[in-house]
Write a protein that binds this DNA or RNA. Structure first.
Lengths: 190, 190
DNA sequence: TTTCAATTGTGATGTAGGTCACATAGTTTC
DNA sequence: GAAACTATGTGACCTACATCACAATTGAAA
């Protein structure tokens, strides 16, 4: 399937744009490819895009003072990723984004997103709903952190994204769950 | 200050509505008052409103199988609160909402929010930005959970919302931080 | 195929924070 | 103002998970 069709199918699930509107909408996106391990957003970068994943897996993550990594999100096809705090506030990136596998993405600048939201009411509707789902998901994950232990969170993650298990190194899954890789290893070997 | 002015000042920070548009916008809100301890949304309820706080403090929270409470959010004046998952999906409430102090709120039904978003582009813009900020805040809190210990999170919370310390029982602060009240007590007595 | 690096497994030990039990304040209620 | 709650403090002990050290395995490179 072509990038344009993938995005169109995705957007049309929450917003009704006419064909001409969608053509215009799509014209603001830039196609890019990245290799496994490549950095898309590095700490301290100026952030001016968000990324729609066409193929491959990305991760967005934070590195603390002890060089420990925490994964905020695995981004898979039809997911969006960026350092949204930096993108909206204009601050430098504290969240990094890189490629777990080779990946194809569509880039949209923050400027163009706002322009599209102004010009096409339906596109603002789309972005409102997208963020909405993200907000609800973040709240759920927060609750899961407070409520559940590591094993529970691990099972939850695999139930929700079975494909991750094969694609993503266990270390990264541990970083997502907020436990050490040793603990994760012990979890599923007992 | 009047409810209408409070909301107008709040909305105008992110969206430009004409006076007539705002009058129309405001006409969809219902003013309500609640007493300290009163439940606004209870577990299992049908959720059809979100609430804009004019005065007082609310808390949104989740109770797990062991009857342990986890606080998702303290809502203070000019904040919004609801069980957004339930409100958007139509499912029954899993998140409850009640009053820490006497409170005045403005209620907006989910139906009216969507109606307003359709009819007034600027109001969709407002709700997109509001949710945006919520999303970024939820992500930050998630990172803080993974990265910081209880003491650090406690200091972070007090630095951000100094007024909470006087208004909110320590038990609730513990529930927000995701620690036991005993642990919280030990934190600031040493 | 050999080599070197990255990933994963596993034991020993440390620690933050949980749980239980009970004491001590404060606050409503009658 | 006594009684009855509700919110807090504090000790003793427990548990999930972290950390460190090193072994084993897998994978990529040459």
């Amino acid at each position: 399937m072509q990038p344009k069709e993938i995005l169109k199918e995705h957007v049309s699930k929450t917003a009704s744009l006419t064909d001409e509107q969608f053509d215009y909408f799509f014209s603001h996106f830039t196609y890019k490819t990245f290799k496994k391990g490549q950095t898309i957003i590095g700490e301290g970068d100026k952030v001016d895009c968000e990324y729609f994943v066409l193929s491959g897996y990305l991760k967005s993550f934070f590195i603390n003072d002890d060089m420990k990594m925490f994964i905020l999100q695995f981004a898979m096809p039809t997911w969006w990723a960026s350092d949204y705090n930096a993108l909206y506030s204009g601050e430098r990136a504290t969240i990094s984004l890189d490629c777990i596998t080779d990946a194809e993405v569509l880039c949209l600048t923050g400027h163009d997103r706002e322009k599209l939201c102004n010009e096409i009411h339906a596109s603002e509707h789309f972005f409102r709903w997208r963020t909405n789902r993200g907000y609800v998901a973040a709240q759920k994950r927060l609750l899961s952190f407070m409520n559940n232990n590591a094993r529970h969170r691990y099972e939850e993650l695999l139930a929700q994204y079975p494909t991750l298990y094969n694609v993503v190194p266990k270390q990264l899954i541990a970083s997502y769950l907020g436990v050490s890789r040793e603990t994760l290893s012990r979890l599923y070997h007992s």
